[in-house]
Design a protein around this nucleic acid. Sequence first.
DNA 1: TATAATAATGACCAGTTAGTCATTTGTCAA
DNA 2: TTGACAAATGACTAACTGGTCATTATTATA
Lengths: 280, 280
Amino acid sequence: MSKKQLIIEAALELFAKQGFEATSVQQITDHCGISKGAFYLSFKSKDELIFSLIDHFMMQITSDIDHIVRESQNEDLLLRFYFSVYQTFQRHSDFAKVLMIEQSQTLNKDLFLKMQTYEKLIDNMILTMLSRLYGEAIEQTKYDLLYCVKGFMNMYSHLFIFHHIPLDLELLAQSLVEKTNVLARNMNSPFISADLYQIVKQPLTEEISQEKLLGIIVQKVAELEDSVEKESLDLLRGQVLHPSLPPAIVKGLLENIRQHPHCKWVAYLLRGYFEKAGLL
Amino acid sequence: MSKKQLIIEAALELFAKQGFEATSVQQITDHCGISKGAFYLSFKSKDELIFSLIDHFMMQITSDIDHIVRESQNEDLLLRFYFSVYQTFQRHSDFAKVLMIEQSQTLNKDLFLKMQTYEKLIDNMILTMLSRLYGEAIEQTKYDLLYCVKGFMNMYSHLFIFHHIPLDLELLAQSLVEKTNVLARNMNSPFISADLYQIVKQPLTEEISQEKLLGIIVQKVAELEDSVEKESLDLLRGQVLHPSLPPAIVKGLLENIRQHPHCKWVAYLLRGYFEKAGLL
DNA sequence: TATAATAATGACCAGTTAGTCATTTGTCAA
DNA sequence: TTGACAAATGACTAACTGGTCATTATTATA
């Protein structure tokens, strides 16, 4: 085992017990029998360690899930998915605990972005899986289904992250497969629309690019029937390209489209965009 | 506003941004324009602050939920429950964030116990609500339903804890009501049995008392048909009261009952108990 | 106004931290 | 055995921590 790996393993154990902040480099080096100086031969800083640690495990985990989703037949796909996820949680329960404790890390921006990248990957795998399983039927509800699946993963993992109880993972997976099927086949009132999902998945701090914004607008315009909303949105598209209207008009146009349930998010995006650009 | 409240508000803001550990007392006092000394007139220590902070908000939140569950008619109970929960998350989004970041706090034992107390309260309210709504029909699945409800609460709260997006909470609540109904009426393969739930809810570090253990065993013995398992369990009950059998036999008896699906938890508890007592 | 009582301050303390670097130890070819 | 190079060490630094307390400012009372 390389020195890096040795340190990562030792650090993981301590982080799971005490958290990242509360664990000192000295403790880590003591715990794996090397000197403090040696630590800094492997890692530039304590921060680099947590980054490496997260990469180390998240790469394993995401590739595991990817493999399952790619290689399984439809009939046992979902079961194998849940089983594999919980097996991974069990195998790397310390890491799962660290992820829980240090959850999402809004604190450190870089770390947050890294985690978001992995989460997006996993989201996409789950979405692929759901589409393969249920097809067109869940087109409207797939993002809600995604959230439900992730909610299950999260909640049930508490069972073995915080308690060391031997669990029948096969049974657990079966139980969650049933829940997922029940929801997929009976849910009719989704909450998370495609564009809400897109917004939420946008990197937190990164502003939306003009290009992307225009893309979303054009798509929405195409969807809409002829109406005040459609006309307003089209005018706003023009304003994004060549700002010429006074703030009052822009504000009014935004108010027009905000009423339409399908346009709420575009309105939200546009308001943010114009505000940043000093046009509101 | 009292000085204590002033400090709590300021601290909350900083904790939400940086986390508890990473926020110094100096930063807090700077942020609310008082001296470091003045802080220690209101709180004995930094720890006491986080305790007060959690009490301050959790008391509000739990009593809100309790009120809803007590006062609502069955037909709009669930809707009002979800609506109120998310309204609270929105109103106290900083606190929700702190709870997320500092989640469950396995680190500090006292804090963990405090949170577990509140969580138990909320669990019981949700269970009461579910039983009132669905009655006997969910007797077998109620703990799974509880986990699903909590999973929804958790997952969907990400939408506004990490993004400041205006959401239609009424619609969100409706959507979750449907999901809950769908699950309650169609789920047949629960995973969380009454005794598994009991174990998980047991204070983490606290060992099980002999008394409690005997109570569980007696109950199980009463449930079982005459069988090897029943006899084994009864012998083990004797061993708890008056240890006399050699480890090998105890181990064998444990193995006997571990096979029976209803006895897995008792077996788990007994193994832990005998190990602690040096009888295994 | 004078006095007592209370509230607030911030320099200070002892302890801990991440990170550095002159020095020692180990390794291996000549 | 020697010497050159790499690996590893741990005492050290500067910064920061939670918490204290002699001192000062403010308020209430007489």
